[in-house]
């Protein structure tokens, strides 16, 4: 019973923290630009406001347009329940492994792309086309990063990977791990629509990837999609943090361990978010047809990670 509660609690913590994470990155970028910026909890106000607005739906859209925000949010929440946020081992109640998580996120993106096409707006179509391109090209890197981790740990199950890294801390500094982390970081930037792949705050439609698909959304639908996007960012960063640097994660359900786990994950997310903010301040957005070059760099990194794992055995 406690396991169910802890699992549900962990998921709710992730869902609740997600807007703060996005807000923190935005705030830090503002500070780096010499501005005071909106406080890190601004996204909560944004979401609350959006829930109070009406939703304007286009005549050309079908039920897919209205169903997509729920699916996007739902799949991201399910993935958040799979990922070790605070506790490492809540299996057997974790419904899937890393591959299941990747495909669940793909389900959300699939419907988001369909919703972009649904309204008949050329921007939506453009966003859908670009997003599916980027997602398709990140898939092999994600798979190979997972393989690199799984080869070391012997399985693609999250808890197994975490346990393995904790029992063999030297493995965390091995080339396989570091290369896989670098590859996964680049994939995170691509999948969550961050610079240099996609600018989350652009207003120029021709430079948009993710934003272009949601141009037609308003009100509660938009709130769900924005929240889902923030949650996706949290999920990816938690994966990067807790799979590669799992120290501090709770290994039991004792309240003290859970507290330490929560604090450590928040600290790690803070560090990674700061890294993203600094990176976004430093680099400019790549034009769309340079993005495959970046993604192939991440693929090569992942491939090298796998090969070094093989050689190290």
């Amino acid at each position: 019973m406690t396991r169910y509660l802890v699992l549900a609690g962990q998921t709710l913590v992730a869902v609740a923290l997600a807007p703060a994470l996005a807000g923190f990155i935005r705030w830090l970028k503002a500070r780096l630009q010499g501005r005071r910026g909106a406080p890190p909890w601004q996204p909560y106000f944004d979401v609350r406001k959006l829930f109070g607005k009406e939703a304007v739906v286009s005549h050309t859209a079908s039920w897919i347009f209205k169903a997509t925000p729920f699916l996007v949010f739902g799949t991201t929440v399910v993935v958040a329940s799979l990922v070790p946020v605070v506790v490492a081992q809540v299996s057997p109640f974790v419904v899937g492994d890393l591959f299941a998580a990747v495909y669940l996120l793909l389900l959300g993106t699939f419907f988001l792309a369909l919703a972009g096409l649904d309204t008949g707006s050329p921007f939506g179509g453009m966003g859908a086309s670009r997003e599916m391109t980027v997602v398709a090209l990140t898939e092999p890197t994600v798979a190979l990063s997972i393989v690199a981790l799984a080869l070391n740990a012997g399985s693609t199950s999250f808890s197994q990977i975490v346990a393995h890294t904790l029992t063999q801390p030297s493995a965390a500094l091995g080339p396989g791990h570091l290369l896989a982390f670098a590859a996964l970081f680049i994939v995170t930037l691509a999948e969550t629509g961050r610079l240099p792949v996609d600018n989350p705050s652009t207003h120029l439609e021709l430079t948009m990837i993710h934003e272009a698909m949601v141009l037609e959304y308003s009100g509660p639908y938009l709130a769900l999609i924005e929240w889902g996007a923030a949650l996706k960012l949290l999920v990816f960063l938690t994966l990067a943090a807790n799979l590669f640097m799992p120290w501090g994660i709770a290994l039991s359900l004792a309240p003290m361990a859970l507290l330490i786990g929560l604090v450590s994950v928040i600290a790690k997310l803070g560090v990674l978010a700061a890294a993203i903010a600094v990176l976004e301040t430093r680099v400019a957005k790549l034009r769309l047809f340079r993005v495959p070059e970046l993604l192939s760099v991440s693929f090569v990194l992942a491939l090298l990670a796998v090969m070094s794992t093989f050689l190290a055995r």
């Binding site: 005071r36 910026g37 207003h203 037609e216």
Partner: peptide, 15 residues
């Protein structure tokens, strides 16, 4: 810096 008051520009009137 209008963002400090919670104001921001958006790309679409729907937003």
């Amino acid at each position: 810096d209008m963002e400090r008051f919670g104001l921001h520009f958006v790309a679409s009137p729907r937003h």
